[in-house]
Simulated assay, not measured.
Amino acid sequence: MLGRIGIALAVGFLKFLAVLPYGITARFGDGLGWLLYQVPSSRKRVVHTNLRLCFPDWAPERREEVAQQHFRHAIRSYVERSVQWFGSAKKLEKLIEVDSAVDLSDPNLPPTLFLGLHFVGIEAGSIFLNYSLHRQCGSLYQPFSNPQIEEIAKTQRARFGADMASRADSARIVLRWLRDRKPVMLGADMDYGMRNSAFVPFFGIPACTLTAVGRLAKAGHAQVVPFIGEVLPNYKGYRLKILKPWENYPTGDDVADARRMNELLEEQIPLIPEQYYWVHKRFKTRPPGEPGVY
């Protein structure tokens, strides 16, 4: 009962934040992130470990600066679920600018896998991409441990016409969506364990990386279009950056195809390093015989 009451109060608070001016909500999230960064935590250690592994040449001061900025962005992104989940379409239109190399209004858009990269604006980017396509889409999600929270998240993420499916049950569903010419949104740049994965370099570190994207693209005769949700400076909102479809992809080599994604991340992360999702244990799964890093 207490859990239900707590969730109801949290949802009520998010709905309240959604009606406030965005700048107030964003500044509240930023301030909360700054405050929580002052407290020692396992997630703070994860951020520092990831930055140390991926950017060994950085000075400690640079690493500390980016770690704090990222922590503030990460906490802010959770607070801004309020606007993303409960804000009106009109409000989102004012907050999110679209920079797309693909014509999202094309009625003849070929079967497409929209590959979301895990920058802190991925939630805003995914929801607004669904809205901008003006058609039924498919979207994969990672299940929550709490079924109530999962149901709320599914409902709000689907509010502009997305069919939702758990990542664990996805392959057959994704292929059906692609056959029906539904664009599909998914993320693959996280450590989901060794199933359907391979160890692929990520900033020179072997990272457990999903190989499913290439196989789904091949089986579904689909193009792969990466996208990034970027947080704009000065609390101005977001930029949904949709990149060009990958050429000569998939190659049929699962490891090479997975490496393509990591190479793209290695190009994009240095542009806004504080916005990549460093709180995730990207190197949690280690190659046989190698010690854990966290």
Rank of each mutant, 00 (worst) to 15 (best):
L175M: 12
D163L: 14
M185V: 02
A168N: 07
R181H: 15
F202M: 04
D189L: 08
G193N: 03
M194F: 11
P183S: 10
K182F: 01
D169E: 12
K182I: 00
R195K: 15
F203S: 06
A188Y: 01
A168H: 10
L175N: 09
P183Q: 11
R172T: 06
N196E: 14
M164Q: 10
D163N: 13
D180Y: 13
G187R: 02
V200T: 08
F202D: 01
R172W: 13
R181F: 15
Y192L: 09
M190K: 01
N196K: 15
V200F: 13
D180G: 11
D189N: 07
K182S: 01
A171W: 04
A198W: 14
M185F: 06
P183D: 10
L186N: 00
L186I: 03
V174Q: 13
K182N: 00
M194K: 12
A198T: 09
L175W: 15
W177D: 06
N196Y: 15
R195I: 07
L175I: 10
F199R: 09
V174F: 15
D163Q: 13
F202W: 09
R181G: 12
S170G: 08
R179S: 14
R172N: 06
M190V: 07
L178G: 10
M190C: 01
D163C: 10
D189Q: 07
D169G: 04
A188F: 00
N196A: 15
M190L: 12
D169C: 03
F202Q: 03
F203R: 05
G187M: 05
A168W: 08
A198S: 14
V184M: 03
D163M: 11
P183Y: 11
N196C: 10
R181K: 14
M194I: 10
D163S: 12
I173H: 01
A188Q: 01
R195T: 09
R167N: 12
M164C: 06
V200H: 08
D191R: 01
F199K: 08
A188C: 03
M190W: 01
M185I: 05
K182G: 00
S197P: 07
K182M: 00
A168C: 04
P201Y: 07
W177P: 05
V174E: 12
A198I: 08
R179I: 08
V184Q: 02
K182R: 09
S170M: 03
A171F: 05
R172C: 09
I173M: 09
R176M: 02
V184N: 02
R176H: 06
Y192P: 02
D180V: 01
A165M: 10
V200Q: 07
D163P: 05
R167K: 13
A165I: 10
F203A: 09
L175T: 07
G193Q: 01
P201A: 06
A165N: 10
M164P: 06
V174K: 12
A171H: 05
M190S: 03
M164F: 11
A198L: 13
F203C: 08
M194Y: 08
G193A: 01
A188R: 00
V184D: 03
L186E: 03
P183C: 13
I173T: 04
D191C: 07
N196H: 15
D189C: 08
R179P: 09
R176L: 04
A168Y: 12
D191S: 09
W177A: 06
F202I: 00
P183N: 11
L186D: 02
M194W: 05
V174R: 11
F199P: 04
S197V: 04
P183L: 08
N196P: 10
K182E: 00
Y192K: 01
R181C: 13
F199Y: 15
V200M: 10
